[in-house]
Amino acid sequence: MLLVCGTILAGSVTAAAAADCEVKLRSADTHPDGYPTVAAVRWMGDQVKERTQGRVCVEVFPASALGEEKDSIEQTQFGVIDMVRASFGPFNNLVPETQIVSLPYIFRSAQHMYNVMDGPIGDQIAEGFAQHDLIVLGYYDGGARSFYNGERPINKIEDLKGMKFRVMQSDVFVDMMAAFGANATPMPYGEVYSAIQTGVIDGAENNPASYDTSGHFEVAKYYTLDEHLIMPEVLAVSKVTWDKLSPEDQAVLKAAGKESVTVMRDLWAKKIAESEASVEKAGSQIVRGIDKKPFIDAMEPVYAKYVTTPEAKDMVEKIRATE
């Protein structure tokens, strides 16, 4: 929550301790300290503190310290937590606009996703978040999500048949797995390691950095770069918190949040390369260069289910037309 904690002493910004900030903003993240999203929000916090002469501080709580993603999103909506960095997946049932950009293979590349989210479509989606008391500060890169498991390498779509994979709590993800011929098991991110280890599920799907930093490679050594989802993520502030800030501080937070997007994306590119090398060194088998066409073709019923309204069809057309 937004906290008022005294008057800052005169002096340099660097000399102002966190306890002396007039306003403390708590920001939640499920990823561990040092992860690109965490580092980018910390960078943003440094910028906010400097630009407000130490009056406003951002405290980042990584590794689900403030709760799993779904819980931290809800707490941010109510203003219990001030900010949250979260994937689009958990928003699919809350903010309909996020469903379209969460569709499998909707983006051709990471750069295509950046061009879409940084333009008018991103602004349109931000309006959807605002209706649920979340003010978008920027869109981060959630990476290309791919399958990993402890049973066998996935070389073709038929290899997925009958396997149990953890997915985020999203109807789109559940339907995607069914179209692949696999079984979806929604569960919190923090439960995945033990679920694979004990055989509750065969595997999960995520980007290389998460596969690495979560330690999931220890229990699921087969990783296939099918890249079925190039997923945006959102950095958002609670409207409850936002409305308590002065217009000047709102402008500072908005600007620093937008600038942190570039910081995050640069860190992300480096992290992906490091993670792939790290897990391979640890014994993981990364399957590259698969034929994606059968995977893409299998998504036809998913698009038929979620792209039904004129607005949704228009958004898909605009995304595909974006260079």
Rank of each mutant, 00 (worst) to 15 (best):
G6L: 09
S12K: 11
T14C: 07
A15Q: 15
A19I: 09
C21Q: 02
V23K: 14
K24E: 13
R26T: 12
P32S: 07
V38Q: 10
A39Q: 08
R42T: 06
Q47T: 04
Q47D: 08
T52Y: 00
V56C: 11
V60N: 06
F61N: 08
A65L: 12
G79F: 00
M83Y: 03
A86S: 15
P90G: 10
P90K: 01
F91L: 14
L94T: 09
I100K: 07
I100L: 11
S102F: 08
Y105L: 12
F107D: 03
R108C: 01
Q111A: 11
M113N: 03
D118V: 07
P120R: 06
P120H: 02
I125D: 07
G128A: 02
A144G: 15
R145M: 14
Y148R: 05
I154W: 03
I154F: 07
N155P: 07
D159T: 04
L160M: 10
K161M: 00
K161C: 01
F165G: 08
R166V: 04
V167T: 10
V167G: 02
V172A: 03
F173S: 13
D175G: 12
M176Q: 13
A184P: 02
A184N: 05
P186W: 02
Y189T: 11
E191T: 13
E205W: 14
P208N: 03
A209D: 09
K221F: 05
L225P: 00
I230M: 10
M231K: 06
V234A: 06
A236W: 11
A236Y: 08
W242T: 01
W242H: 01
D243F: 00
P247L: 07
E248D: 12
K254D: 09
K254C: 07
K258D: 13
S260N: 11
R265T: 08
I272W: 05
E274G: 01
E274M: 11
E276R: 14
K281W: 03
Q285Y: 00
V287S: 09
G289P: 12
V302M: 07
Y303M: 12
K305G: 10
T308Q: 14
K313T: 11
K318T: 14
